[in-house]
């Protein structure tokens, strides 16, 4: 009863909407990460002008494609308080199954949609197990990550599968460049735009955010929470499969050991991009930019002739600094509004 009394006194003073708050909403959440990315590129460019060479920038961007796609897909589970640790395994399995299909004579452009469908199915499996076995998605996908990669390894007998029709336009065009830009980078941009629209402008996106914001209220409001969860996990699986398909086209082989640890980098990229683990919010462009930031840092190390073995250290430092800065910024913003 004392609590209700204190709330009552607070109720007495309705706050007029402040202009500053409206302004801060205009400045999109992504502005911060984009600024960091630009500063990083310019900063490195000042000391090592060769870094700003368009070819170098494009190949740096190309390196961000796989993690970028996974991060963009990961926004969906993260925004509804779930997580998908199986994207790395899904990525490897997609690659291997694609390579096997193409080796065994399936035309590459037919094999591609098949493996994309399979990747989405794997995501759906994660969602179904999470929902119906009532196990946290963290644990389910921790297990399926191993399952998926295990199948990939067994399927490929632990080796890379090279016997693919390299002359197919699947490898030439999708693995190469279009209009002078790596095709994979174009696919990342396109997928980023589509997923952004799905996340911010459709009922499904709004449902994902609603569940993540308050699962109890969402259920009592009649939202089909289970179905939304399965769909969100499917999205994540599909994005990982797209990354695997692009990797197959680029590497001209199916490598079951590729993509190990990508899931954690992807989660880091999503968090850097402003998708909190607490759910309710998320940003697909932010996640893509987060992946680009990580790729720029890795590339910059090469330009500064820092031994490649420091890459993990640098990535860890970037994640910590970016997330701490973001948290500080948010605290500051809530205090001023």
């Amino acid at each position: 009863m004392t609590q209700s009394l204190t709330t009552e006194t607070r109720d007495a003073s309705p706050r007029p909407p402040s202009r500053r708050r409206r302004l801060s909403r205009l400045v999109r959440d992504e502005t911060g990460v984009v600024a960091v990315l630009v500063l990083l590129i310019v900063g490195v460019g000042v000391f090592r002008p060769g870094f700003l060479d368009p070819d170098n920038l494009l190949s740096t961007g190309r390196n961000a494609v796989y993690v970028g796609l996974m991060a963009a897909g990961m926004v969906f589970p993260l925004a509804m308080r779930e997580v998908d640790l199986s994207v790395g395994g899904n990525f490897a399995l997609t690659m291997v199954v694609g390579a096997v299909l193409m080796r065994d004579g399936v035309p590459p452009w037919l094999a591609a949609p098949i493996i994309l469908l399979m990747a989405a199915g794997l995501g759906a499996v994660n969602g179904v197990i999470t929902t119906y076995a009532r196990i946290p998605s963290f644990i389910v996908t921790l297990a399926t990550a191993l399952l998926f990669r295990g199948i990939a390894l067994a399927f490929a007998a632990g080796k890379q599968i090279f016997e693919v029709p390299r002359e197919s336009s699947f490898f030439v065009d999708l693995g190469g460049r279009l209009f002078g830009v790596p095709s994979a980078l174009l696919v990342l941009v396109l997928a980023g735009v589509v997923l952004t629209v799905v996340f911010t402008r459709t009922r499904f996106g709004a449902q994902v955010r609603a569940v993540g914001s308050n699962p109890d209220a969402a259920a009592l409001t009649g939202l089909p929470v289970d179905r939304i969860r399965i769909q969100a996990m499917t999205m994540s699986g599909l994005a990982a499969g797209l990354a695997g398909t692009l990797a197959l086209a680029f590497f001209l082989s199916g490598d079951p050991t590729l993509g190990e640890g990508f899931e954690l980098t992807a989660i880091a990229a999503a968090i850097i991009g402003g998708t909190p683990l607490a759910g309710g919010r998320g940003s697909v462009p932010g996640a893509v930019v987060g992946a680009l930031i990580l790729a720029v840092v890795t590339a910059a190390l090469v330009f500064f002739r820092i031994p490649i073995n420091w890459t993990s250290f640098a990535t860890g430092a970037v994640i910590l600094v970016a997330v701490a800065a973001d948290a500080a910024l948010r605290r500051y913003r809530t205090r001023t509004s």
Binding site: R203, A210, S213
Partner: peptide
Amino acid sequence: LMLDQTVWENATAVRWLG
């Protein structure tokens, strides 16, 4: 309610989302 979402998003949650 979804406290971190806007008022109009909450006000449309039953019909449009639910």
